[in-house]
Simulated scan of single mutants.
Amino acid sequence: MKWNPDECDCSVAYTLAIVGGKWKWLIIYKLWNNGIQRYGELKRNIPHITHKMLSQQLKELELEKLISRNEYHQIPPKVEYALTEKGVSLIPILQLMSQWGDDNKPDIESK
């Protein structure tokens, strides 16, 4: 998603343009929680994401310099993803989101 300052010149709009959506936060969380991961590991750790969506989201996160992609020229090819310093700077927000979710998600037993 591209940020367009003509639509809304505010910091929240910019942040949402960079990391908005369902999958980017989960990818960032998995890389933070599990460390460096290969594509297949990320796919296994986020089972409901499609291959196309995972690939697209990884490319967008890399373009924004939130993750790094390290390609090793070997057979079979090996690619690893990791959080960059800029990506790690989102972790306090992610921790607050996690705490909010813990505090507000409905009790499974009460359903």
Rank of each mutant, 00 (worst) to 15 (best):
M1L: 10
K2V: 15
K2I: 15
W3V: 13
W3C: 05
N4A: 06
N4S: 11
E7N: 07
E7S: 06
C8P: 00
C8I: 04
C8H: 06
S11E: 13
V12W: 07
V12L: 14
V12Q: 09
V12P: 00
A13L: 00
Y14S: 05
T15M: 12
L16F: 07
A17L: 00
A17E: 03
A17C: 11
I18A: 07
V19N: 01
G20P: 00
K22A: 11
K22E: 15
K22V: 15
K24C: 05
K24T: 07
W25C: 05
W25F: 06
W25Y: 05
L26Y: 03
I27K: 01
I28F: 02
Y29T: 14
L31E: 01
L31T: 01
W32L: 09
N33V: 12
N34W: 05
G35H: 02
G35R: 02
I36C: 04
I36F: 03
Q37T: 02
R38T: 14
R38L: 06
R38G: 14
R38Y: 03
Y39F: 15
Y39T: 06
G40A: 08
G40K: 08
L42R: 05
K43A: 12
R44Q: 13
R44F: 10
N45T: 09
I46H: 04
I46N: 05
P47L: 10
P47Q: 10
H48Y: 09
T50P: 04
K52M: 08
L54P: 07
S55N: 12
S55C: 09
Q56R: 13
Q56D: 12
Q56L: 13
Q57C: 14
L58T: 07
L58N: 04
L58Y: 04
K59D: 15
K59S: 13
E60V: 11
L61V: 07
L61H: 03
L61Y: 02
K65Y: 08
K65Q: 14
K65C: 11
K65R: 12
L66H: 01
I67V: 15
I67G: 00
I67W: 00
S68V: 05
S68Q: 05
R69A: 13
E71R: 07
E71D: 10
Y72N: 09
H73S: 10
H73Q: 10
P76R: 06
K78G: 03
K78H: 11
V79C: 12
V79Q: 10
V79M: 09
V79I: 15
A82P: 00
L83V: 02
T84W: 00
T84N: 02
E85Q: 12
K86E: 14
G87I: 04
V88C: 09
S89M: 06
S89Q: 10
P92Q: 08
I93M: 11
I93T: 12
Q95T: 11
Q95I: 13
Q95C: 09
L96E: 12
M97Y: 08
Q99H: 10
G101Q: 10
D102F: 08
D103A: 10
N104T: 15
P106N: 05
D107V: 06
D107I: 07
I108S: 04
S110A: 13
K111N: 13
